[in-house]
């Protein structure tokens, strides 16, 4: 079965589900009871999961829909929260009274910079967009520099200067010693102006061990995060398998497994023929 046929089949499935649900609703069953959203949610969730088996039309359809919906959602949200309220509302308060701003013609500058960004779509004047980019880069570099200096360098350096010996508390003393040794050795590892040999090499090697422990902790947290997301989706599918939703996830799972199975058998047959 060709790729185009698969896309048509999956689109047909979505259309059929939509038609059935609309049919139920029109017969007087409430939207909530049918759980139209659960059908779509189940189809898209399982469509994305189906990639774990192999790349297929369900996955491609779900992925492309996600990209399209995300882009449109972001554009709409940015327009109504920023351009409508914060730009038009300040430049033309009489025409946009819901924004609640006084007129401020200073906002002509961001409008011009914004239009410069759109110049990228016309290659002959695309270079103008660099002015806007330069403004953004300069602004954020300035903002971040100040914040990083205070919070990440000054505060963190201050916290790293700990007493190595705390009378009466062996655990705290050990903890502080580990932090001080770890910080110094990890920093030495990133000092490349001298060859990592002798005592310097030993210290930088100790630094690697501390870095490895940090990466291990990151990996552990990453696993926990991903499993949490999987749990969230599975919980959704369990909710969607309820009778009040019309057994949405169960039906969609069965349909998808059937279609993928037929596809696998057909492709095996094609391979054998070849």
């Amino acid at each position: 079965m060709s790729r185009d046929v698969w896309i048509l089949v999956s689109l047909g499935l979505v259309a059929a589900l939509t038609a059935v649900t609309i049919g139920f609703i029109s017969w007087g069953v409430s939207n909530h009871a049918i759980g139209f959203g659960f059908w779509i949610g189940s189809l898209l969730t399982l469509g994305i999961f189906s990639y774990l088996y192999k790349d297929n039309a369900f996955y491609k359809f779900s992925e492309h829909l996600f990209v399209g919906v995300s882009a449109s959602y972001w554009i709409a949200t940015y327009y109504w929260t920023q351009i409508d309220t914060n730009l038009w509302g300040r430049l033309f308060p009489a025409q946009f009274p819901h924004a609640g701003h006084q007129q401020n013609l200073f906002y002509v500058i961001p409008l011009i910079l914004g239009l410069f960004m759109l110049a990228r779509m016309i290659p002959s004047i695309g270079w103008i967009s660099r002015w806007s980019l330069a403004f953004i880069v300069g602004l954020y570099a300035g903002l971040r520099l100040y914040g990083f200096l205070q919070s990440n360098i000054m505060e963190q350096t201050r916290d790293s200067l700990r007493p190595l010996y705390i009378p009466g508390s062996f655990v705290d003393s050990l903890n502080n010693t580990l932090i001080v040794v770890g910080v110094i050795c990890a920093l030495l590892y990133f000092f490349f102006s001298r060859e990592h040999t002798g005592a310097f090499g030993v210290a930088s090697r100790v630094g690697i061990f501390f870095l490895m422990i940090s990466f291990g902790a990151s990996f552990g947290f990453a696993v926990m995060g991903r499993i949490s997301l999987l749990i969230g989706r599975f919980n959704y599918l369990i909710q969607a398998s309820d009778a009040s939703t019309g057994y949405a996830s169960a039906v969609v799972t069965a349909g998808m497994v059937l279609l993928l199975g037929i596809g696998a058998l057909r492709s095996r047959g094609d391979t054998q023929e070849a």
Partner: peptide, 30 residues
Amino acid sequence: VLYAADPYKIPMSSGTTAIQVNEVIPYVKG
């Protein structure tokens, strides 16, 4: 932390995704 809690000394706390914990934990320990 960078632009509100630290500069203005406003008490702050946080709930993050697991993957972000390693990035934020130095601020907690500090």
